[in-house]
Amino acid sequence: HNLTITQGKLFFHYNPKLCLSEIHKMEEVSGTKGRQERNDIALKTNGDQASCENELLKFSYIRTSFDKILLRWEPYWPPDFRDLLGFMLFYKEAPYQNVTEFDGQDACGSNSWTVVDIDPPLRSNDPKSQNHPGWLMRGLKPWTQYAIFVKTLVTFSDERRTYGAKSDIIYVQTDATNPSVPLDPISVSNSSSQIILKWKPPSDPNGNITHYLVFWERQAEDSELFELDYCLKGLKLPSRTWSPPFESEDSQKHNQSEYEDSAGECCSCPKTDSQILKELEESSFRKTFEDYLHNVVFVPRKTSSGTGAEDPRPSRKRRSLGDVGNVTVAVPTVAAFPNTSSTSVPTSPEEHRPFEKVVNKESLVISGLRHFTGYRIELQACNQDTPEERCSVAAYVSARTMPEAKADDIVGPVTHEIFENNVVHLMWQEPKEPNGLIVLYEVSYRRYGDEELHLCVSRKHFALERGCRLRGLSPGNYSVRIRATSLAGNGSWTEPTYFYVTDYLDVPSNIA
């Protein structure tokens, strides 16, 4: 807008934040220059609390790290170098490059900038070799853009010569660093050979998330399962459950009422301010606690030095998902009996873990797994792929695949051998790939016309006998059925096997 004052003059007093240069501009645009008398524009009460600059400061050096910015700028000295009290560095987070010096300023003089007072450097006698002032900004957020400017702080001049310097606002972004852990990993099994893994992005990506790394490792069953005799009275049979499938998407929606109208769909109840505040506090606490764990609990591995020492970490090797089922080394339970199943799973520490690289999504279907087997899954978020990966501390989750139908069934015939004193040795093959492992066998036998009897055969007993022995049988026709019990439950009964026990007292003698 054009402003013209045809008559009258300007009068400025007691404006401590208004620089004289701005008042002189007002004289020019209003056409009143030359009308004012000496005392109409006070030299001592206008701009006496402001830094009124008329020179431009330029930054000469900028260096960044993930949490620091090192700045240096060209030296500046007023005509009387004693008038320079120091520099004021202003900075704040700036997602967009549209910041002005006066953003967030209120009537009390406060604003949204963080201000650092910096002492002037030592003055050199040689004007050509003056030290460049600077400042190291610490405690910054990774991968965050900051708006920065600097200006001088000078003393009051009796001659009211307006001098000083100020830089333009520059924008500097800190470097990326390792992201925080992925949030809320959930693993479920939808079949006997697959596990579905879902997660949420890290709360602090500290860069642009480029991919996720998912490692999985087959877990050995508890050692007590191999040692305890679950045929003993009072000892509860062990059981394991597989990871249940995901709930429906509708039930997972946030901010939804727990109660549904019987007449149909209901609208979600909005969260109160107290609920939102509580969630923010919980989120802040979780982030602080995660940072504490990362800094205190997890110790970084030592990389190899120039002395030739090897990095103890196993090298990563990509495998196809079809090879995942046989990740671990199978060892027989008892070496003397080769027909026992290889369900003991000690994992070799030198073995390469299978892994998958996930790009542009937060889910993965891990296939080719062994049925009813526990897996430990390790999830890392990465925001750099080359020249070397920059990934987060791992988040861990466990899951067990679903049982395989008929995996616990005894394959092959049940054979028998009759000894003296009416002892019958029953023999059968253990299931080759049971659900988890076989903890015991149930032997059901009966003599024709009598009630059915049951015998429990422990895992250890089966390994020693290759089956079991029935003792003290009365003469007669017998039928026997056997079924295995694994961590997933009972298998199917075998087809009945028949044998006849004679009275050993009636056996004919070869003595003449």
Rank of each mutant, 00 (worst) to 15 (best):
G207S: 02
F215T: 05
E217N: 11
E217T: 15
Q219R: 15
Q219N: 10
E224M: 06
L225V: 04
F226L: 08
D229A: 14
Y230N: 07
K233A: 10
L235G: 04
T241C: 04
S243L: 12
S248Q: 04
E249H: 07
D250M: 10
Q252W: 13
H254M: 12
Q256F: 15
Q256A: 14
Q256K: 12
S257C: 09
Y259V: 14
D261N: 13
S262W: 14
C266A: 15
C269V: 03
P270M: 04
T272K: 07
S274H: 05
Q275N: 04
F289W: 04
H294K: 03
P300Y: 04
S305L: 11
D311H: 05
S315Y: 09
K317M: 10
R318A: 13
A330H: 11
A336R: 15
F337A: 08
P338C: 08
N339C: 10
T340L: 10
S341H: 10
S342I: 04
S342R: 14
S344I: 11
S344A: 13
S348A: 15
E351D: 13
R353F: 04
R353P: 15
P354W: 05
E356I: 06
N360L: 08
V365H: 13
G368K: 12
T373M: 08
R376I: 14
I377E: 00
Q380V: 06
A381W: 00
A381L: 00
N383W: 01
D385H: 15
E388V: 09
A395F: 05
Y396G: 06
V397S: 04
V397P: 15
A399G: 12
E404V: 14
E404P: 11
K406P: 05
K406W: 07
K406H: 09
E417P: 06
E420G: 15
N421A: 10
V424P: 08
Y441T: 03
S444H: 13
S444A: 08
R446S: 00
Y448D: 10
H454E: 01
C456K: 01
V457P: 00
R459Q: 13
K460D: 09
F462A: 07
F462T: 06
A463K: 07
A463I: 09
E465W: 15
R466C: 06
C468M: 14
R471T: 08
P475I: 12
Y478I: 02
Y478E: 00
S479M: 04
V480Y: 08
R481W: 06
R483A: 09
A484L: 12
A484I: 15
L487F: 14
L487G: 03
N490L: 15
W493F: 08
T494N: 14
T494L: 04
Y498I: 14
Y498W: 09
Y500G: 12
P508I: 14
S509W: 11
